[in-house]
Every structure is written in C-alpha cells, then in structure tokens.
C-alpha cells in the first residue's frame, strides 16, 4: 500500500451532502476485475454528459481544480454501496485526502486500506476549509498525518483525530493481511476453542 505522510495540494470543494458511492463511481464501471484505471470515471455522471463531453460546471472540470489532491466534501460522504471501487477511483484520479463532517462507515474504512486519508472535522472547521477550497488553485492546503493537522492557505491550523493503528499503517504503508498473519497463533487458538464451544459453526 502507498504511504501517506504529508501532502500539500489543491483542495476541490464539493459541498453536496450524502454523496454516495454510486455518484463516486457509477456501477457500469464495476465490471472490471482490476483495481486500477477507474480515475477517468470518478464522479462520471456528474462529470460528463451522455456523449462523454465534460460538464463545465463540475468542480473537477474547472481548470483550477483539475490537479486537486484533496476533496472537501459535504456531510455523510461515501454512503451507499460498499464498493471499494469508490476509493480506487478517487486514488486513481490522484486524490489522497477527503475532508468532511462525517463519512459512511464502510467507505471510511476502505480509504485507509488504499492509502487515502479521510478526515472528520467539525462544522465550523469544515466551513473554513470549504471557503479555502473555493479560492481555487491559489489556495493550497497542507495535511500532515504525523502531526494530525490540516493547515489552511492562511496558515490556520486544524487538529484532527485519527485511529492510532490506522495512522501507523498509513504512515508506513503497511498491508493489513501481513500484520494479521503475524497473529496466526491467536487465530488458531481461537479456532480450536470455538470448534469446541460451537461445533455446529
């Protein structure tokens, strides 16, 4: 997995609430058996018309946001389907950090498994960052995972919470499966005990 340490970049504002995973990556693009190549279809139905032409108004089609690496999004981002294609598409586009007031559970977890940092901030902090993002490419936001801080283009610092284990994995690019396999003795012991206690399973 790719590491995430510190990032300074353009943030794209998407104030819409309840952006679901169908909007992030419509299901027609789920018929792949690979993880890569989904970035061109990120937000597909909001980004292109039926003929495949870009919809000018859409934030990522505006010249100042094309290179965005951060997304400042409305409440309950990533709700709906569990498709990991959503973070794959976000990552493939080049976005490494999403900031919102809340995220849907499964999406939130999926981000960490793909080198994306989702950050939850308060409503006031969110409003501040949204305003900053609206300034376009002149405003660069810095996200520092080690320090757990977001710094606005005006130098204002916002601290954020992150689960210690998830932070550790993200900072070091660690693969969950490898880490869990180191605990295989515990798993074996559990299985031995459970097959006694609940043999019907």
């Amino acid at each position: 997995m790719d590491k995430f340490t510190k990032l300074t970049g353009i943030a794209a504002p998407m104030p819409l609430v309840n952006i679901d995973t169908d909007m992030i990556i419509p299901k027609v693009f789920l018929k792949t058996i690979k993880r890569s190549g989904l970035g061109v279809n990120l937000f597909d139905e909001m980004r292109y018309d039926r003929q495949g032409n870009e919809i000018e108004d859409f934030v990522l089609n505006q010249p100042q946001y094309r290179e965005a690496e951060i997304l400042v999004a409305g409440d309950n981002f990533g709700c709906g389907s569990s498709r990991e294609h959503a973070p794959w598409a976000i990552k493939d586009y080049g976005i490494r950090c999403v900031i919102s007031t809340s995220f849907a559970d499964i999406f939130f977890n999926n981000c960490f498994k793909n080198g994306i940092l989702p950050i939850v901030v308060s409503e006031e902090e969110h409003a501040l960052l949204m305003k900053d993002a609206e300034k376009g490419s002149n405003a660069r936001i810095t996200v520092d995972l080690e320090a757990q801080e977001v710094t606005t283009s005006d130098g204002e610092v916002i601290a954020f919470e992150v689960d210690a284990f998830k932070k550790h994995c993200l900072l070091n690019g660690l693969d969950d499966i490898g880490l869990t396999m180191e605990k295989s003795a515990s798993i074996d012991a559990f299985e031995a005990q459970a097959s006694q206690a609940r043999p019907w399973v």
């Binding site: 569990s82 990991e84 499964i106 999926n110 498994k113 689960d163 969950d176 499966i177 869990t180 798993i187």
Partner: peptide
C-alpha cells in the same frame, strides 16, 4: 452481519478474521 470492502474480503479470505473496533 455487515458489509466489507474488497480489501477486507481479501483479509477475511486469507485469515478468516477482520480488523475491527
């Protein structure tokens, strides 16, 4: 019972466990 992402599918296939809080 709950839904998981594809990385977690792989994790469960490989270890029969899920990392959870």
């Amino acid at each position: 019972a709950h839904g998981i992402g594809t990385s977690e599918v792989e994790h469960v296939l490989a270890t029969q466990t899920l990392i959870q809080k």
